[in-house]
């Protein structure tokens, strides 16, 4: 494929303004290929450890060491180590199939749900190993919330969607038994619903129809509802897996604003396909490239202006995608 670079170069130059279209085209070509072959236009180079050695002052919220993931025989993630600082936005970028979503799902052990996945390595939350056999998954996922690529509200009312988590964790008791014993938390629930929806910038749009089915909301509203639902459990870390990829530009910008706001109280890790988005909202950026390798991890400005790796530079300038 390398011999094609010369031919495509001119194309890329003329298409600078329509960056996204090239992006998606090339994305489509790479999607067809199996992960073992090199992506179109990617040059060979050796990864150096210092590219991923990102230092920061505050203590690490999450620290990942030598994480490896296999799906059956497919080695999806290779020896990834990185530390994520507290109360900041960390963006994970890279072409399709580079393992960034896999990596994200390892951080709250959602990969446990895929039976073929085998995970090796260590992930620590505040210094506590989450891959310990005695880990309390309920507690872990309470502390590390997650928002998915496409909005997935439950087929329940908006109110019930928000209070779902706290109710499952016994924070809010409603129903016959609770009322019988005088432990009815309806007021607390109302407070929580309002606070979460306000945080997710959705309160003004839905406060008059909290009992409507959540599936009746628009895509952008649904995604913000999912964020509100996640906030209601009061997590410390929020993982977002391309939260805006299925949304229109206006909804996307709302979500981006929201992410920036959230970084004041929470640690946000966000996977995105859209480099402008990463550049806009994140404090630091990690670049994954084909084969499930973490190639470079540093301040966002550094990554986008002066990357160390030639491959990262090629990727960011849109030579391949």
């Amino acid at each position: 494929m390398n011999n094609q670079i010369g031919d495509t170069d001119t194309d890329t130059d003329t298409n600078v303004s329509t960056d996204t279209s090239t992006d998606s085209q090339l994305g489509a070509t790479t999607g067809v290929e199996t992960s073992t072959t090199t992506t179109a236009g990617e040059s060979e180079e050796q990864i150096r450890d210092e590219w991923t050695d990102y230092r920061f002052d505050s203590p690490a919220k999450l620290s990942v060491e030598d994480l490896n993931v296999w799906y059956g025989d497919d080695h999806a993630l290779k020896d990834v180590s990185m530390e994520i600082p507290e109360e900041s936005v960390t963006a994970l970028i890279g072409p399709s199939g580079c393992g960034k979503s896999t990596y994200l799902r390892c951080l709250n052990r959602m990969n446990d749900r895929i039976k073929a996945a085998r995970i090796d390595g260590s992930v620590e939350l505040d210094g506590m190993e989450i891959y310990d056999p005695n880990t309390n998954l309920v507690e872990l996922r309470k502390r590390i919330g997650m928002v998915f690529q496409s909005p997935n509200p439950f087929p329940k009312s908006i109110r019930d969607n928000i209070s779902y988590g706290p109710r499952k964790h016994g924070e809010i008791n409603k129903g016959l038994l609770a009322r019988l014993f005088g432990r009815d938390d309806s007021e607390k629930e109302a407070e929580l619903v309002e606070r979460s929806l306000r945080q997710a910038a959705l309160w003004d749009e839905v406060n008059d129809r909290l009992d409507d089915n959540a599936l009746g909301l628009s895509g952008g509203q649904q995604q913000r509802l999912c964020i509100a639902r996640c906030l209601a459990v009061d997590p410390e870390v929020i993982l977002m897996d391309e939260p805006a990829s299925a949304l229109d530009p206006i909804a996307t910008s709302k979500i981006e604003d929201l992410v920036t706001d959230l970084a004041e109280d929470y640690t946000v890790v966000i996977v995105t396909h859209n480099m402008q988005q990463a550049a806009r909202i994140s404090d630091q950026t990690a670049v994954f490239l084909t084969g499930g390798e973490l190639v470079e991890y540093d301040d966002t400005d550094k990554i986008f202006e002066n990357p160390e790796s030639q491959r990262v530079e090629d990727y960011i300038t849109g030579k391949f995608g």
Binding site: N108, M110, R113, L137, V138, E139, L140, R141, K142, G145, M146, F148, S150, N152, P153, F154, P155, Y164, G165, K168, H169, C226, R229, C230, V233
Partner: peptide, 13 residues
């Protein structure tokens, strides 16, 4: 399955 994933990600069993 997205709904189940959503529920699991909130810490529900």
């Amino acid at each position: 399955d997205a709904m189940r994933d959503g529920s699991a990600a909130m810490g529900a069993t």
